[in-house]
Amino acid sequence: MQLPDEHKLASSKKRKQAIAFWIFRIFSYAIIAILFSILSFITYKGFSAISWGFITQMPEEGMTKGGIFPAIIGTLYLVCGSMLFAFPIGVLAAIYMNEYVKDGIIKKIIKQMTNNLAGIPSIVFGLFGMSLFVNKLGFGDSIIAGSLTLGLLALPVVIRTTEEALKAVDDTFRQASLGLGASKWQTTSKVVIPIAFPNIITGLILSIGRVSGETAPILFTVAAYFLPKLPTSIFDQVMALPYHLYVISTSGTNIEESRPVAYGTALVLILIVLFANLLANALRKYFGKKVKMN
C-alpha cells in the first residue's frame, strides 16, 4: 500500500475545492442575476408607462390607454378586507397556540391543520371561495367573497409570523408579570404583546405583500374584467391589479397595444412587494429579532 503523495494530495484537494466553490458561487450569482433581470426589465419597461395619470385615471380605449385607478382601489379594498378578517383571527389564534393551550393533542391538531391550510394551492382557495361564498352564501362575485377567500389564504401566514414573534419574547417577562399577581390575559396583553408587537406588524406587512399579488383566489370570487367605476358596497365586484395584469397581457382586446399598461401594472405590483419587503426588513433591523415568512 502506497500512501498518497502529500503534496499531490494537497493540491488536488485544493483544486477540487476551488472548482466546486466557483460553481456554487456562479450559480448563486446567477440566481441573483435572474432576480435583477426580472426587476430591472419590468422597471425599465414600466417606468415610462407610470405617471400620475396612470395611477389616478380610469382605463380607456379597451384598456390600452388611460390608467389603472380602479384596479389599485380594488386591490386596496381586497387587502383591507382580507386583513380585517385574517389579522385579528390569526393573531388571536397564535396567542392561543403560544400562550394558552398546553402541549398535547389539541395543539397538535391545530398545528397540523394550520400547516395543511398553508400548503393548499391558491387555486383551490379560489374553488372553495366560489362554491361557499359566491354560490352557497349567495354573495356573488363581490368584495366580501374575495376578501374572505384571500383572508383564509393569509391566515396561516399571519399565525406563523405572530407565533414566531411571541416565541421570541423571553419567558422571564411572563414569569415576572405572573409573579406580580397579573392574570394570564393581563400578562399577555400588557407584557407579551407589546414586546412582540413590532414583529407581529412585520408579519402583517409581509402578508399584505403576499395578498396583494394573489390572482388565482380572486379569479372567480371578485375580480372584474373591466369595470370603470368604483365599488359602492362590499357586494360589488372590483378590478384588481394582478388580475388586471393577467387580463391585459393574455386576453385583452388588443394585447400588443396594451403592453405599456401591462408593464406599468407589473411595475406597480413589484413596487408594492418591494416596499413591503423593505419595510419589513427595516422594521426587523430596527427592532432586532427576526420574523420568518416561510
Binding site: L92, I95, V101, T114, L117, F128, K184
Partner: peptide, 27 residues
Amino acid sequence: SEKFIEGLLMLSGTVTSLAVVLIVFFL
C-alpha cells in the same frame, strides 16, 4: 372576562381547522 377571552382565543384557534374541514367538504 378571563374565561370569555380564553374562549374567544380558542375559537380563533379553531378557525384554520374549520377552514380545512370546510374546504375538504365543499371541494
